[in-house]
């Protein structure tokens, strides 16, 4: 219960909750008028954007003690996986959209 109350009293949490709520509405607003042709690239682009989780991986990796090998190895893996998500996601999306670009020129 305390934690729920703290959502409104703790300024840091309050700020984060505001971001959450506004982002939910933004996400809905931004997507709601999209032609079905673009569903696949859009899904792929969104997929790349949630790769932002890599920032957490970098912070974890960068704070791990140099003698905590398990943390280092797990963090290392996390950064690789996150990078794959980001890089792969954006490149794949770009390749899909490249097809549309070609068509537009004609």
């Amino acid at each position: 219960m305390e934690s729920i109350i703290s959502l409104f009293t703790d300024p840091a949490t309050y700020r984060l909750m505001t971001i959450v709520i506004l982002s939910i509405f933004l996400g809905i607003e931004v997507i709601s008028r999209v032609p079905s042709v673009l569903h696949t690239p859009l899904m792929s682009g969104a997929n790349a954007i949630h790769g932002v989780v890599i920032i957490g991986a970098i912070i974890v990796m960068g704070q791990a003690h140099t003698d905590d090998y398990l943390a280092l190895v797990l963090g290392f893996l996390a950064v690789i996986l996150g990078t794959l998500n980001v890089v792969g996601g954006f490149v794949v999306t770009d390749r899909m959209l490249e097809m549309f670009g070609k068509k537009k020129k004609k």
Binding site: S23, I24, L26, G27, V30, S32, V34, L42, A46, H50
Partner: peptide, 10 residues
């Protein structure tokens, strides 16, 4: 969150 909500709508 953006992807979470946009993904749900999608």
């Amino acid at each position: 969150i953006l992807v979470g909500s946009a993904g749900t709508i999608l």
